[in-house]
Design a binder for these strands. Structure first.
Lengths: 140, 140
DNA sequence: CACCAAATGAAAACAATTTTCAATAAGGAG
DNA sequence: CTCCTTATTGAAAATTGTTTTCATTTGGTG
């Protein structure tokens, strides 16, 4: 969280109250959130914030690789923070279908060589998404 | 293509001119297409078709597992036909970033056991998308 | 060929996102 | 600490993408 703020400052962006509110809302949730949900949560921290600012902040954070879009079967409108452990713009997530919790996979072990050989494609990036129930939701 | 039509009939859906137009447009492209693009192409085959029908046909085909949504970094508005070889609702695609060509992977070789053990998730489905340049575009 | 439900197209409604623009506030200079 | 500049903001309007409504058309069956 403080890390996110530091990153913003480092890149020359201002650390404003609305941005703080969005960052805190994001950091305090393990689940993926839509702009609307994020807006509701951010508002609890900074009442005056507008939905537009949420969109703008998300765009900014996405550009900086601090949040990632979560691609679900029925739409791709949610975002989750990027785990600080993965420096890169990785896209390897495990997503709980019940509570929305998102976890990142360090390594995906895709046989890229093989895929490249088979298809003849020159591969530059990839995305892996695994869906299911997280330990908590699985118990219920 | 004829296969798609047969499938429609088999499920009790009517084979109408607009649907034919959409199916042909889909079948004749190796690339993923947005509803808008599909509309333009379908119109070349059946002038009177409306964009609404394209949406409806896509929804139908998606339900039947004959097309899949393509999830790109900057939006998920495209569709590609499902390779007839993969009966299942697989989501393992190789996508050309230049021409949009989509190829399906038969097998993804993800170490699901491992992922499950590591994360504690009970896994029910997954999606793999590999992006890069197809053989043709790579040459240019 | 006639019938009827399924399917269609046009227009309207709706939802999500982006743009515009005047007002505000972060943060560096003094 | 105050001033100043400019990035950032919020509200409203505009835009874009998608869905609904409903009267009309049409595929397929008898």
């Amino acid at each position: 969280m403080d890390d996110l703020i530091t990153q913003l400052q480092a890149k020359g962006y201002r650390v404003t109250q609305p941005r703080r509110a969005v960052l805190e809302a994001l950091a305090s949730s393990r689940a993926h959130l839509t702009p609307e949900e994020l807006y509701r949560r951010a508002r609890r921290r900074y009442r005056k914030i507008g939905l537009v600012t949420v969109y703008r902040t998300l765009a900014l954070l996405h550009e900086l690789g601090l949040v990632q879009r979560v691609h679900l079967n029925d739409g791709c409108h949610s975002f989750a923070r990027t785990d600080s452990t993965n420096g890169e713009g990785h896209h390897h997530q495990v997503i709980c279908q019940d509570c929305g919790r998102v976890e990142e996979l360090a390594d995906c072990a895709l046989p890229l060589q093989e895929i490249s050989a088979e298809t003849g494609f020159q591969i530059s990036q990839h995305r892996v998404e695994v869906m299911g129930l997280c330990p908590d939701c699985k118990k219920r």
